[in-house]
Structure formats: structure tokens, C-alpha cells
Amino acid sequence: MSDQGFEWHRRSDLAPGDQEQRGVGLKLIGYLTGLGLAVILTATSFFVASTDLVWEPSIPVAIIVLAIAQMGVHLVFFLHITTGPDNTNNVLALAFGLLIVFLVIAGSLWIMANLNHNMLPMDQIMRMQR
């Protein structure tokens, strides 16, 4: 009886890292796909960083885009966070976490750049202290 109840829950909710009931082969293919995509993305970003073939100002943007793509690959294929209805709680928590991460990083950079911009040059500060 309790087994049936357990099975019923299994179909309705997933822990992060959980997968739906699938065979070993399918799971293996999932991890292999994730590994392959991650290797391709990593190799591309190392290549972009060390080559002269790419237009230089575009390199930082390319690296950041590749990094975000790779994090997505890791989330989907390794941590099994998907957009399915059984994953709503996990995705909502992730979205909140991303919001905080964005606020912390973008906010710090913005505020500190502003302060740097408004600060007197170092030699002038020295002169005022004399």
C-alpha cells in the first residue's frame, strides 16, 4: 500500500537531481549528451580566449555567453532541473537565486563604477591631505 502511495508521489513531484523513471541506457545517453555539450562549449571558450581569429572586442561577450550556455547545460543534463510541471518548486527557487545573484553582481559593479567615476584622482587627494 505505502509503495503505491510512494509511486504516486514519484509521478507528481521531483527532487532536484531526480529524473523521471527511465532505463539505464537512456540515463547514460542523457549524461553523455551533457558531457559532450559541455566539452564543446568549454573548448570553444578556451579557443575564443586564446585565438586571434575573433574580432577582439567581441571576446568577453562571447566568453560570457558560452559560460551561461554551459551552466544551462549542466543544470539540465546533470542536475536535471527542467521546466516540467513536476519541477516548478526547483525552478522557482532557481529563479529567485538568479535574481539575487544578478542584483549582487550588477549592483556592486554599478555602484563601485559610479564611486570610482566621482572620486578625485589619487594625486589630488594626496594634495588635499597635505
Binding site: 531526480d18 527557487a93 539575487i100
Partner: peptide, 26 residues
């Protein structure tokens, strides 16, 4: 079931860990 609750709680911890790392990144 406990498995779902445990996994979800640990996921929340991991996200807080990531938030801490974002402070170091900033």
C-alpha cells in the same frame, strides 16, 4: 516524501551557496 523534501532543502542550500559565491565574484 522525505526524498523530495530533502532534495528541495538541499537545493535551497546550494542556491544560497551560489549567492555567497556571487558576492566573491562581485
Amino acid at each position: 516524501p522525505k526524498r523530495i523534501v530533502t532534495g528541495y532543502g538541499f537545493w535551497i542550500f546550494l542556491l544560497s551557496d551560489i549567492v555567497m559565491f556571487s558576492c566573491f565574484f562581485a
